[in-house]
């Protein structure tokens, strides 16, 4: 923790802007899944790089917070590193890569493998907040469809998937029904992560900077992934465990290893992978007893997410 950058307000945005965004956030929390318009500001990065998430984070961050930023699950990619150092500079907050230690997690395209806990807030960067957009291009019409809860159109998309591919082929940004009322785009997280949103103890906030929309899922809210009775929602599955840490039941990225077609599948969540790999190598590094705090976190992962040792 250090003093915030001289000449900047804490969190970069001015206080009036933060108040405006907090009002939008309060409204969003009060109506789970409803897209609240807000006056999106310029932040020192291009639209499409997570400006919505950055504005939400800037509005809720305090100097006692501990921030973690992930991009596709990884803490060490350009986007994650630059947003993390941005907030370290302008808000003077402590940053971490450990999911369990963070109070605010800003994310692009993933939910961490370590289950989120009560008191944590996860901020999603959202490129397209409107789940019906590619089916209905008119904003006036999609708003009307939300107002009347007229969601037959979304099922047309799922129908088309099944008719064409034999199964629902949507694997990311898989539409969800929040609290039995609003259809919501969960941002482009893999459908693998969808079940983690359901009745999560953490507060989930969504910011779309370019599209100027904020929405939220309060803790312990029902988030149901759409499906048909005879073709229910099924999250993605992976056949093999992570090639580095051996975790099964986690989301994997394919990493190209050479130019002869070789590749390996490794955890997309780098924090989880590091800790699982350390546990695999023997817990001596962190070891105070058999199950240290962080390792227990890892092991109580998703239901099948055990570390194979």
């Amino acid at each position: 923790m250090s003093a915030p950058l001289d000449g900047y307000n804490i969190g970069y945005l001015d206080e009036q802007t933060k108040r405006m965004i907090r009002r939008a956030l309060l409204k969003a929390v009060a109506i789970p899944g409803f897209q609240v318009p807000f006056a999106s500001r310029e932040v020192p990065m291009p639209r499409g790089w997570g400006t919505g998430g950055v504005q939400v984070t800037a509005s809720i961050i305090g100097q006692d917070d501990v921030l973690k930023v992930i991009d596709q699950g990884a803490d060490d990619t350009t986007n994650a590193v630059s947003i993390r150092s941005f907030f370290a500079a302008v808000a003077g907050v402590r940053t971490t890569t450990r999911t369990g230690e963070a109070t605010i997690i800003q994310t692009r395209h993933r939910i961490p493998e370590t289950p989120l806990a009560a008191g944590q807030t996860i901020v999603y960067q959202v490129p397209g907040p409107e789940p019906l957009r590619f089916l209905e291009p008119r904003e006036t019409e999609t708003r009307r469809l939300h107002a009347l809860a007229d969601y037959g159109l979304m099922y047309v998309k799922l129908y088309e998937d099944i008719a064409r591919y034999g199964h629902i082929a949507t694997t990311y940004d898989y539409p969800v029904m929040v609290n039995g009322r609003y259809l919501m785009a969960p941002s482009p997280i893999p459908s693998f992560d969808n079940p983690k949103m359901h009745r999560s103890p953490a507060l989930q906030l969504f910011g779309a900077g370019r599209e100027k929309r904020i929405y939220a899922v309060p803790p312990y809210t029902d988030v149901e992934s759409l499906g048909f009775e005879d073709h229910p929602f099924e999250p993605q599955r992976f056949d093999q465990p992570c090639a580095i840490c051996g975790s099964a039941g986690v989301y994997l990225d394919e990493v190209i290893t050479d130019d002869k077609g070789g590749s390996m599948f490794v955890c997309s969540d780098t924090d989880h992978c590091e800790r699982a790999a350390a546990a695999l190598a023997g817990t001596s590094a962190t070891g105070t007893g058999t199950g240290t705090g962080t390792d227990t976190d890892t092991d109580t992962d998703t239901d099948t997410g055990e570390v194979t040792a």
Partner: peptide
């Protein structure tokens, strides 16, 4: 099929078959 099925799904049919 999607065109003919849409009105049915709009009134709550949730069985693909």
């Amino acid at each position: 099929g999607g065109n003919v099925g849409e009105p049915l799904m709009a009134i709550g049919w949730r069985h693909y078959g």
